[in-house]
Design a protein around this nucleic acid. Structure first.
Lengths: 141, 141
DNA sequence: CAGCATCCAGCTTGATACTG
DNA sequence: CAGTATCAAGCTGGATGCTG
């Protein structure tokens, strides 16, 4: 049995890593890949990044993460909550108030993610220069 | 003018960050968001992770990144090359041999990415436990 | 080997309307 | 405010066939 690596139903059993292998995102059937996708997905990454600065309410998050739809934010938050990265704190008031914040695990992940995001943001000039070179070389041909 | 933040044609001009703002992935129209997506996308992340261990040829990469199709790998490599993260070295032999390796910029990014990946992989037990709790609480209701 | 071009199924997404 | 439900549309991505 492979309790850590649940087989996907659309994949033959041979694709499931042996049970004693460490989690590896490189393996198709490893659950770490789905978690990585939640974390690095378009909205997951931005949501974790936003929450790293402090807890936020639903519509605050919606404004902070420019372009996210209500539906996608909701979906993203559910996935992150399920993975234990985000904690949902609902006050039973009227109107309702719900705060989202990172769990300790979520903070660990968010810190690594932020380091990546800041690395990319800080080197965009290089990236844009590379793009210009690439496009020039291609356009010439 | 906002040379760094090219407006998307499907967005009104007001969505473009002011020219003096730093690059921010939180802004819909900032090019850093697309680069972040190339880096963190399902195949981009795994490709950078694989190349961090050393240069690889096309089909080696294809085997290493379990589940990637030829088309997606090709597409991913183009995006990463254009962003200046991956260098493509083609030998004009027959049969052709093409090696892909990280650029210095790519290595910087990949290191941060790897830190994130390893963080997630190393804490999958916590994630799976959180999932079990979440599902139990939901299933009960 | 290292790709590119094409087709198209289906999943993701955004818009809209509705609920507590 | 904080969501859920539904549905059409479009983009993603896999399969296939072909090239140098």
């Amino acid at each position: 049995m492979t309790p850590e690596c649940t087989p996907r139903q659309d994949l033959p059993a041979q694709d499931v890593p042996a049970p004693d292998l460490p989690y590896s995102v490189f393996a198709r059937a490893c659950p770490s890949r789905t978690t990585l996708e939640h974390v690095t997905g378009r909205w997951g990454a931005l949501t974790l990044g936003a929450l790293h600065e402090g807890s936020l309410r639903f519509n605050q998050l919606r404004r902070r993460v420019d372009g996210v739809s209500e539906k996608m934010l909701s979906q993203t938050l559910h996935a992150l909550e399920r993975d234990g990265l985000v904690h949902r704190e609902a006050q039973p008031t009227n109107p309702p108030r719900v705060d989202y914040e990172l769990t300790p695990l979520g903070r660990e992940v968010a810190e690594r993610l932020l380091a990546l995001i800041q690395c990319v943001e800080g080197r965009m000039d290089e990236v844009l220069a590379a793009r210009a070179r690439y496009d020039a070389a291609r356009g010439a041909r």
